[in-house]
Simulated assay, not measured.
Amino acid sequence: MASCTGIDENVVTATDRQFVKDAAVRNLLNSQTGQIARTRGTTDEIRRYGEVLIRQASTTSEELIALAEKKEIILESTLTSSLQEDVNLLAGTPEANFNATYITKTIESLRTTIQVFEQQIKKGNDNELRSWASTKLPFLRQHLERAQTIRTTNNMQTPATSK
């Protein structure tokens, strides 16, 4: 149905398509880094937090796949080379620096992901995608707040080696 602006709010634009692709890649990043934290975290808190992100990423992935199929958008199944490099660096982080590095990288990643979702809500054309982004934003903010709390309560300093 066309709005009074003459723009069909159910048409998937290039911006909407890019959002779905970006959301899928950001979600994959959370899943992969969460898996690393689950196995390499040196405290139960970090391992549990990684597990939470893995579970959320799994749910989000299922929803994204369904949306992409419905909107006829092809999703990437791999990270960009830059994000893959970040994952590889995290996996190779010395144990003594792992928790702080993981939390720092997660905070940076979640901030970027939140920006991607906020942009879709503000500038996306497709109503269903804007609505979906709106439902996910509170969870992303909650994960960010939790990561910031972990960093603060554990007095984690940003490692000098972080990008």
Rank of each mutant, 00 (worst) to 15 (best):
S61L: 00
V20Q: 04
V11D: 10
E95P: 10
L79F: 02
R40G: 13
T78R: 12
T13I: 11
T93V: 06
R40Q: 15
A14P: 08
D44V: 14
T80E: 02
D86S: 13
R40Y: 12
V25S: 10
E63A: 14
S31K: 15
Q84S: 01
L90E: 01
L75H: 07
A24T: 05
I65L: 05
L28E: 09
T93L: 07
N30D: 13
T59E: 14
S77W: 04
T59V: 12
L75S: 02
V12C: 08
D22W: 03
K71L: 03
N27R: 04
A91D: 10
I7H: 07
D8N: 11
D8I: 10
T15I: 11
E95T: 13
T42Q: 12
T42S: 09
R47I: 07
I36C: 08
D16W: 01
T78M: 09
R26G: 05
I74G: 00
A96S: 11
T93F: 08
I36G: 00
A23T: 01
L29G: 08
T78P: 06
A14H: 10
F98T: 02
N30H: 12
G50Y: 01
E72P: 13
T33E: 11
L75R: 02
E69L: 08
E95Q: 12
E51K: 05
F98P: 04
I54Q: 05
A23C: 12
L29C: 06
L90T: 00
T15R: 06
S82I: 06
D44S: 14
T80M: 00
K71N: 05
G50T: 00
T15L: 00
L89Y: 06
I74E: 14
G41A: 09
E63M: 11
Y49K: 03
G50A: 12
R47M: 02
A14E: 15
D22N: 08
A57N: 02
V12L: 04
A68M: 02
R38S: 15
N30L: 07
A91Q: 07
A57E: 10
E62T: 04
V12Q: 00
S82W: 04
D44W: 09
T33P: 05
A91P: 01
R55H: 15
L64N: 03
R47F: 10
T33M: 15
L28F: 01
E51G: 09
T43Q: 00
L89I: 09
Y49Q: 06
A66W: 03
T33V: 15
E72D: 15
N99S: 01
S82F: 06
A14S: 08
P94T: 10
E9G: 00
K70G: 11
I65F: 09
E63Y: 11
T59M: 12
L28S: 03
E51L: 14
S31H: 15
N30A: 12
D22E: 07
P94G: 01
L89K: 05
A68W: 08
I36W: 05
E72M: 14
N27Y: 10
N27D: 09
R26H: 14
R48D: 06
E85Y: 06
A57D: 10
T13G: 05
A91W: 05
L83V: 01
L67S: 04
